[in-house]
Design a protein around this nucleic acid. Structure first.
Length: 270
DNA sequence: ATATGCACCTGTGTGC
DNA sequence: TGCACACAGGTGCATA
């Protein structure tokens, strides 16, 4: 699921309802998450007030009033909801935070790859290795060109490296590469400066557009209110193997790169 | 340091 | 219908 646009959508929704609320009770239903949730039970969260909700890359940061934060990551299938306590627990909901207005923050993840942990400050230590935010000026063609020199990995893997740029995953890497006319298997070090300019420009445009559409709901991702992100209908190549390229009509191809399904137009992307 | 493959999980779709 | 297998918005670790 959640790449940057989905995390941004969730963070914005949570920012509208959580700040000012007090956590009254913590319930953990699933001890065997990839990142165990049990530390939340003894973290002294009861009584803490939520001050703000922020995003960094694919992470959502729920800032508490005691110098700590809850750091959220949605893995592949993470969903958060804020619903009344009267709604019964779903099969894959692993954590409830009961709030002082009768609502419950619910953390769901089918594959249990999601993370919810208490961190110091706003998670500076945990987030230190992330590259720049793609929607800031720090991320541009010059930056990409500089980092790409001497790199031998496929450019798609390069764009999906969180240390290079934070928050671009399998969907938006594929769409960015299509929009920029660059084949995902291209060796990163072979990129021309102009191609780096196009990659940075198209990544920004597509991520911004996807945020405006509320992200992409392929199967699991949902908004905090349960509705779906609309950007899946705008995807040009992701998941469209065998369909016609919307630009030239050639057949969209697929191959595995870095163990991930990768989609491209063999005519438009060189 | 960089590149690659796999493990971590459950659910779904496909082919036999 | 049942079963095996591949695959799914990600990341971390082991191995070269």
């Amino acid at each position: 699921m959640p790449e940057l646009p989905e995390a941004e959508t969730v963070a914005n929704a949570l920012a509208a309802v959580l700040p000012g609320r007090r956590i009254e009770k913590v319930e953990v239903f699933t001890p065997s998450m990839r990142e165990p949730l049990t530390p939340l039970l003894s973290a002294g969260l009861a009584g803490r007030r939520i001050e703000a909700v922020k995003r960094r890359g694919r992470y959502v940061i729920v800032v508490l009033d005691d110098g700590r934060s809850l750091l959220l990551h949605f893995g592949m299938t993470g969903v958060v909801r804020v619903e009344p306590a009267s709604v019964s627990r779903r099969k894959h909901e692993h954590l409830f935070l009961h709030l002082d207005d009768g609502m419950v923050f619910r953390f769901e993840c089918v594959r249990r790859f999601s993370i919810c942990k208490v961190v110091r400050g706003e998670g500076e230590a945990e987030l230190a290795k992330l590259g720049p935010e793609p929607l800031t000026e720090a991320f541009d063609g010059a930056y990409l060109y500089r980092l790409s020199r001497g790199r031998g990995c496929p450019v798609k893997s390069f764009l999906m490296d969180n240390g290079v740029v934070a928050g671009i995953g399998n969907i938006y890497a594929a769409e960015t590469l299509f929009a920029a006319g660059v084949r995902p298997s291209r060796r990163t070090g072979s990129l021309k400066r102009k191609e780096c300019d196009r990659l940075a420009r198209e990544a920004k445009r597509i991520l911004q557009w996807a945020i405006e559409e509320g992200g992409s709901s392929i199967s699991d991702f949902r908004h905090v209110d349960g509705s779906e992100g609309k950007f899946a209908r705008e995807l040009k190549v992701y998941g469209r193997t065998g369909e016609a390229c919307p630009v030239c009509g050639a057949t969209i191809a697929a191959e595995r790169i870095g163990g991930r399904g990768s989609f491209y137009c063999p005519e438009c992307q060189k």
